[in-house]
C-alpha cells in the first residue's frame, strides 16, 4: 500500500499510468476516500494521463490529524504532496469538499494548476451543508446511510456502520473540522473565486442540493462550463462512466 509522508503525516496515495506526460490529481470529499475514483473514473483517465489519488487527512488510510481542515491547510497539504511527487503542474479535479480544495488551489497556486474540474462542490454558506457538520449524531449517520443506500444501492453492514460511526465521531468531536469549516462560510462571496482564470468544468447532479452552488460558480468563474448530470450529490457513484468521460473529454480538449 503506497504511503508517503507529507507535512510530517502519512498519506495513502494511488498512482496510475505513471509514465504519462500529463498528470491529473483527484481530490475526494469529506467522510469519503480515494475509492470514489479508484474503480471506474481513475482507470479511464489513466488511459491517457498519469492519475494521482490520495486520501485526505483522517480519511481512508491516511493518518488521523486533529487540526488543519480549513482550505488553507488542505491546500498546503496538496501542494506539499505535489512537491513530494515532483509534479510541477497538474490538471486538478475535486469532488464535494475536495472541489472546494481544488478551487482554493487554483486561487492560491495558479501556476501549479492547468485545467480545473469541480464536481458537486457545495456553497459552504449553505445551511444544509453546514447543518451536517453542526448536528452529527448516530441518527444522522443512519439517516445519511439510508439516503446514500437509496440513491447508490450500496448497503452498509454492521461493521462498516461502526467504522463510519467511529470516523464521524473522531472528525466531529475530536478534530477542529467544525470550526475550520466555519471559517470558510464566505468562500463563495469573497472576491477570490473571481480571480480563477483556468478553464473550469463544473459537474453537478440535476437533482442535487448543490446544483445552485454550481450555477453560482458558473457565474463567478470567467472560463467555466456547467454540465448537469442525471443524479444527485452522489453522481460519481451513480454515474461513474458519465463523469469519467466528461472529465476525459474536458482535459483532452485543446
Amino acid at each position: 500500500m503506497p504511503i508517503i509522508t507529507v507535512n510530517g503525516k502519512s498519506v495513502h496515495l494511488q498512482e496510475l499510468n505513471k509514465g504519462a506526460a500529463e498528470t491529473i490529481v483527484l481530490v475526494h470529499g469529506m467522510f469519503s476516500n480515494l475509492s470514489v475514483y479508484y474503480f471506474n473514473i481513475a482507470p479511464l483517465l489513466a488511459t491517457k494521463y498519469h492519475v494521482v489519488l490520495y486520501d485526505l487527512k483522517s480519511h481512508g488510510m491516511s493518518e488521523k490529524t486533529l487540526t488543519g481542515y480549513d482550505l488553507e491547510s488542505m491546500t498546503n497539504d496538496l501542494l506539499a504532496l505535489m512537491d513530494e511527487l515532483n509534479l510541477h503542474d497538474v490538471h486538478l479535479g475535486g469532488y464535494s469538499f475536495g472541489g472546494l480544495i481544488a478551487l482554493k488551489m487554483a486561487i492560491r497556486f495558479p501556476e501549479r494548476i492547468n485545467k480545473l474540474s469541480i464536481i458537486e462542490a457545495p456553497d459552504p454558506n449553505d445551511d444544509k451543508t453546514r447543518g451536517i457538520i453542526d448536528e452529527y449524531s448516530r441518527e444522522f449517520l443512519e439517516h445519511y446511510v439510508e439516503n446514500f443506500t437509496d440513491t447508490t444501492k450500496v448497503k452498509m453492514g454492521k461493521r462498516q456502520m461502526e467504522r463510519n460511526h467511529r470516523m464521524y465521531e473522531y472528525l466531529f468531536y475530536q478534530t477542529s473540522i467544525k470550526t475550520d469549516m466555519e471559517i470558510e462560510k464566505n468562500f463563495f462571496s469573497s472576491q477570490s473565486i473571481k480571480t480563477i482564470k483556468k478553464s473550469t468544468l463544473l459537474l453537478y447532479g440535476t437533482d442535487s442540493n448543490c446544483l445552485s452552488a454550481g450555477k453560482q460558480l458558473d457565474g463567478l468563474i470567467e472560463n467555466a462550463a456547467l454540465i448537469a448530470v442525471t443524479g444527485d450529490h452522489n453522481i460519481p457513484i451513480q454515474q461513474p462512466m458519465v463523469i469519467a468521460e466528461a472529465l476525459l473529454n474536458f482535459f483532452q480538449e485543446t
Binding site: L34, Y38, F39, P43, K155, G157
Partner: peptide, 28 residues
C-alpha cells in the same frame, strides 16, 4: 454483502492482489 467490506477495504485488497501477481493480471 457477506464480507461487509467497504470500498477502501476493497482498494486494499486489490493492492494486495496486484502486489502478489504483478503484471500477470490486471485486477483493477
Amino acid at each position: 454483502k457477506d464480507l461487509e467490506m467497504d470500498s477502501i477495504e476493497i482498494v486494499s485488497f486489490s493492492e494486495k492482489i496486484k502486489a502478489h501477481f504483478g503484471e500477470q493480471i490486471d485486477f483493477t
